[in-house]
Design a protein around this nucleic acid. Sequence first.
DNA 1: CCGACGGTGTTACTAACGGTAACACCGAGT
DNA 2: ACTCGGTGTTACCGTTAGTAACACCGTCGG
Lengths: 214, 214
Amino acid sequence: MDTTQRTDQQRSADRRRRELLEAADRVVLRDGPQASMNAIAAEAGITKPILYRHFGDKGGLYAALAKRHTDALLDSLRAALDAPAERRERVEATLDTYLAAIEARPQVYRFLMHPAEAGQVGDQGFDVGKHSWPLLRRMGEELAQVIEERLDLGPGSQQLARVWGHGIVGMMHAAGDWWLGERPCPRDELVRSLADLLWGRLAAAGDKVGGPGF
Amino acid sequence: MDTTQRTDQQRSADRRRRELLEAADRVVLRDGPQASMNAIAAEAGITKPILYRHFGDKGGLYAALAKRHTDALLDSLRAALDAPAERRERVEATLDTYLAAIEARPQVYRFLMHPAEAGQVGDQGFDVGKHSWPLLRRMGEELAQVIEERLDLGPGSQQLARVWGHGIVGMMHAAGDWWLGERPCPRDELVRSLADLLWGRLAAAGDKVGGPGF
DNA sequence: CCGACGGTGTTACTAACGGTAACACCGAGT
DNA sequence: ACTCGGTGTTACCGTTAGTAACACCGTCGG
C-alpha cells in the first residue's frame, strides 16, 4: 500500500532528520554558532546537499535547532509560572528557572541569543534576526497572556499586559546576560534584586542627598 | 617641522575617515546591515583596501559606525536622566527619549541592535556580539551609576543598582523593540505603562479570579 | 525479468564575501 | 635627484552558502 510505504519512508526520514539535528547540536555547541554547514555535515557523517535537502537553508537548520531548545525552555518557564503559589513566589521561581537554565547551559543560551558572536575570521554565523528573537518574543507574549488572564488591571488591561510581558522578559534577559558574563553575585541574590525592582522598590527608595525635587 | 606636517596629514586623514564613515552610514542605512565592504567602498567612490587601511577590518568599521550613534543616543539619555525634575518625571523622560530616538530612526536602531537581520541570501552581516551589545551594556552601566549615586538603597546598594540598571535598560529595550515592530499604542502610553511597571503596579494589582493564594 | 521511481548519497561547481599582497602615483622635505 | 608617507589601484586567496548533475539501491508495476 502507498500508506504503509509512505509511513516507512517518513519514519526513516524523521529519524534521519533527528540524527542530523543532534549532530548539528553537537557541532554548534562545540564550535560556537559560526559552525559551517560543511562542519555540521561532516559531524553527521554526510555531505552538505543532504542538509540542504532536509532543512532548505542554513536558516531552516537554525530554526529547527532553536525550536527544540526554545520549546524546552518555555516548558520549564510555564511550569514555574503556573505553580500554585503566591505571586511573588511565582515571579521569583520563574526568574530563577530562566537564570538557572542559562547558567546550566550557557553555550545553548549564547547560541540562541548571540548567534553571531565568537566568530573570529569570517563572521557568517547563523542569521540572528529571524530566529533568535522569536524566543524573546514568545516569552513576552506568553508572559503577557498569563498576566492578562490572572491580574485585574482595569481598563486597557490587554495592552498593559503585553507591554509588561515584553518589558519583564527584556529585563530578565538583559540582567541575565550581564550576570552570566560578570557573575557579580549568586543567582538567588539576582532573583531577589529583580523581584524587588518589579515590586516597586525603585519608586519607594529615598533620595540620597538633595531634596526629592532634585 | 614634523608637527605641522603631521597635523596636516592627520587632519586630511581624519576628514577622509569621516567621509568614509558617512558613506558607510548611507549604505548601511539603505541596504541594511548586511551591506558588503565592496558596496561601502563603492559608495565612497573608492575600493576595499582603503577601508581596511582605515578601519582594520569589518568589525572596526562597524565599531566606529556604532560608536557615533551610540554616543549620540547616550548623550540625549544623559540629558533626560539628569534633568532637574521628580523621579517619575525623569524616568518617563528618559524612556520617552529612548523610544523617540528609535522611532525617529528605526534603521539606525535596527543596525545597532539587530545587525544580522534582513540578510536574505548570504547572511554575513556585521558581527553582532562584540559591538552592538556594548550599547545595551553601556546604557545599563550608566543607568546603574545614576541610580547608585542618587538613591539611598541601603546595604549592597552598588550591586543592586547595577542589577537594576541592566534590568531597566533591558526592559526598555525589549518593550521598545516589540513596540517598534507592532506599534500597538502611541508612545506616551507605552512610556506610562513601563513607568507604572517600575512603580510597582504589577505587585499592587489584584488577582482576577481566585483568592490571592492562587 | 525489467524498466520506472523515489530516496540517499556523492563530486564538482558557482557566486559572493572578507581580507591581503603587490604595485603605481604624487606631493613634500633633504 | 631621491626617498618617504599617504592614497589609490588590480588581482588575488581562502572560506562560505548554496546548487546542479550524476550514481546507487530497494521497491514497485508490467
